[in-house]
Write a protein that binds this DNA or RNA. Structure first.
Lengths: 198, 198, 198, 198
DNA sequence: AATGAATGAGACTTCATTCAT
DNA sequence: TATGAATGAAGTCTCATTCAT
C-alpha cells in the first residue's frame, strides 16, 4: 500500500475515533464520518469492508497504542511495587491524555458489539499471551510480593479502581492529579501485596 | 394512575430491561419491545414520551432496586469492616442474580446515551444525596477506620475491583463464588482501611 | 388479514407488475414503486420482506393467473387437436391481453434471478404436477394422436413457436390476429401430431 | 487502431461475455470486469463510452458470430429440407457449445435493456437485410416447399422450438443429443413445409 | 495510453413515531 | 384507551464514472 493510501486510512481512523468517542458508534453516520475525514463516503469502503470492520480496526489500533504506552519505561530490575506504580501511572496518563481513546474503549467493551466475542478473546489470552508484555511478567514473579489469588482477581484489584476513577475524572468529578493517582496506586498496591506480618 | 395502568407500565419496563440487556438499546426496536410486552406499539407511547424517556425511567427503576438491595441487612452497629464486606457482598449478589440489570446498567453508563448528562447527575448527587443512603453514612463515620482520601477515590478503591470482576464473571472468565467475593472484598478493605501502624 | 390489508397488498403488487414490466426489476427503485402504488416506502416492507420476496410473490401470482387462463374452456371430450388449438389460443390471448404479465414473466425467467432455481422447479414439476392441469392430461392420452417423443421435446414443438411469435408481436413486428394464431397453432399441431400414413 | 488496442478491446469483450453470462448485467460491476480482463477500470472507458455501449457492442459481436456459425456449410444446391436441418443443427451446436453466448443473448433479449430498441432494430431489418444471409436466401425460394405464411410466422415455427429446447437443455432438463436435435428439426420442418396433398 | 483511487448519487432497508379506527 | 398500519427520514453500502498521476 502506498504512503498516500496509508495516510488516508489513518485520516479516516482518526476521524472515526473522534466521532465515535463523541457520539457513539450508532449515532455516527458514515456520511458524517466521511465529512469529518474529508473524503467521499465511498472512499471509506475502499479501506474498510463495512462499519464493523472499521470499528474493529480502530479498536485494534487503540488497544495497541495503549499496550505500548503502559509498559513504557517500566524497569524490570526495580521492585515489584515500583513497577506496579509505574504501570498505573502510565495507564492513567495515557487515558487522561487521550480521552477519545478512553471513551472509544469504554463503548467498545461495554456495548454488545463484540462484547462477548471481544472481551473473551481479549481477556482470555491476556492470561497467556497478547497483552501480557506487562501482565504476565508482572504476575509471574509474584510469588512472594503479591497475594496468591486467581489472576483475574488480582487483575480486578489492581486495575479496577483506577479505571473506575478515570471515568469519574472524565465526567469532571475528580481532578486526577499526581497526588490522587499515587494515592490510588498505593491503595491498589495495598490490595494485592502480600503483607508479610499481617 | 389505575392499578391496571401501573401494571402495564411495569410490564413494558420489564420487557424493555430484558430486550435492552440482550440486544442493546439500538438493536431493540420499539416494535419488538411491544411484542415482548404483549402490548401495541402505540401503547408504549402512552406511558413514555419516547424511547429515551423509557430508557431513563428504566434506569431509575433499576438503580433504585440496586440501592435498596445494597443496603439490605447492613447493620450500622457493626464494625466498619463488617459493614463494608456486607455491602460488597450484597452488591455482588444482586448483580450476579440480575444479569439483565447489570448489562443494562453497563450499557447505560458507558454508551454516550446519558453518559455525561447522566453520570454527572448521578455521581454528583452521590456525594450529597440519592445513592448516599449507604455511601454517605458509610464514609461519614470514616474518620478513624478509613484512609483520609477524597470520597471519589475511596469510592473507586472500594467498588472498582468488584465491578471489574463482575464483568469478567458475566463473560464467563471467573467463577464468582463466595470465596472469591470475600477475597476481593478483603482486598478492597485493605485498600481503603487505615492501617494504624503501617 | 383484513380486507384493507389485502387491498394494499394487491395495490402494491399491481404497481410492481407495471413498473417491473416497463423498466425491469433493477431499474425500478422501491421508492418509485411506492410512489406508483401511493404508499409510503416503508409500507411495502410490511407486506414483503424485501424486493426479492415481492418479485417472487408477483411471479407466483402471475403464473397462477396464466395457468387458470390457459385451461379455461378446454373440453376434454373434444378431439386432441381441438383441445390443443384451444390451449394455444387461450395462451396467446392471455399474453396479448396482458403485456405487463408477459414482459414480467420473460424477465423473470431469463434474468439470472431465479433462473436456475425457478425454471428448474417450474419445468420439473411441470412434467408431473403443478402446471399439469393441462400439460399432463394433454400428453397422457397422447398415445395415438401425438408423436412418441420425450415430453420436453413435445413441449418445445408445441409452445416454442407461439412464445417466439408473441415476443415479435409485442415488439410490433407482427399483427397477431386470429388468422395468424390459427396458422401457428396448426403448424405446431403438424409438428407434434402423429401423421398416420406419411 | 493498433493491433494491441484491438487485442485489449477483445480481451475486455471476452471477460464481459463470461461475467455477464454468469452474473447478469446488473450484478457485474465494472471493477470486477476490469479485474477479470486484467486491465484498469479506466481502460474500459477508453474503448467503450459506458457500460451500455459495452453491452451493445458485445451483443453485436455475439450476434455476428452466431450468424456466421449458422450458415456454415449450408449448401444452396441441396434440398430445402436438407438446408433447413443443417441450419437448425448449426444453431443448436453453436449455442450448446457456447453457453456464455447463449445466456448473454437470453438476457439481452429479455431484459428491458434494449428490448424494444434493439429487438425492433434487429428483427425489423431481419426481413430485409442484416441477419438475412440465411433467412432471406432461405425463405425467398420458399414458394413451393414451404407454407405461404408471413415470414415472422415461419420464423417462429422454424426456430421457436429449438430455442425453447436449448433453454431446457441449459437448465439440465433435457439431454440435447443428435437424435433429439433431429427429432425437433424434423418436427419444425413438418410445421413449415408445404405438404403437397394435404 | 493506462491506471485505479476517489467520488457521490442512489439503491435498499429499518425503525421511531403518529394517528385513524 | 389501545392498537398497529402507515409513514418517511435517515442509515449503510454499491458501483458507474472520472481524473490526477
Amino acid at each position: 500500500m502506498s504512503p498516500a493510501n496509508k495516510m488516508k486510512r489513518i485520516t479516516i481512523l482518526k476521524a472515526a475515533l473522534k466521532l465515535f468517542a463523541e457520539q457513539g458508534f450508532h449515532a455516527a453516520p458514515m456520511a458524517q464520518l466521511a465529512e469529518q475525514a474529508n473524503v467521499g463516503v465511498g472512499s471509506i469502503y475502499r479501506y474498510y469492508k463495512d462499519k464493523e470492520e472499521l470499528i474493529e480496526t480502530l479498536y485494534e489500533e487503540v488497544d495497541e497504542a495503549l499496550q505500548v504506552a503502559i509498559i513504557e519505561g517500566v524497569d524490570p530490575t526495580q521492585s515489584t511495587r515500583k513497577q506496579f506504580l509505574h504501570l498505573i501511572i502510565n495507564l492513567t496518563h495515557f487515558l487522561k491524555d487521550h480521552p477519545h481513546e478512553f471513551k472509544f474503549l469504554e463503548q467498545y467493551y461495554h456495548s454488545p458489539y463484540g462484547i462477548d466475542k471481544k472481551r473473551e478473546k481479549l481477556l482470555l489470552d491476556n492470561t497467556a499471551g497478547r497483552q501480557s508484555p506487562f501482565i504476565k511478567i508482572f504476575f509471574n514473579k509474584s510469588s512472594k510480593d503479591i497475594k496468591r489469588l486467581p489472576v483475574p482477581v488480582l487483575h480486578a484489584l489492581a486495575f479496577g479502581p483506577i479505571l473506575f476513577l478515570i471515568r469519574d475524572a472524565m465526567a469532571g468529578l475528580v481532578e486526577l492529579d499526581e497526588t490522587v493517582i499515587i494515592q490510588v496506586a498505593d491503595g491498589c498496591w495495598d490490595a494485592i501485596r502480600n503483607r508479610a506480618g499481617s
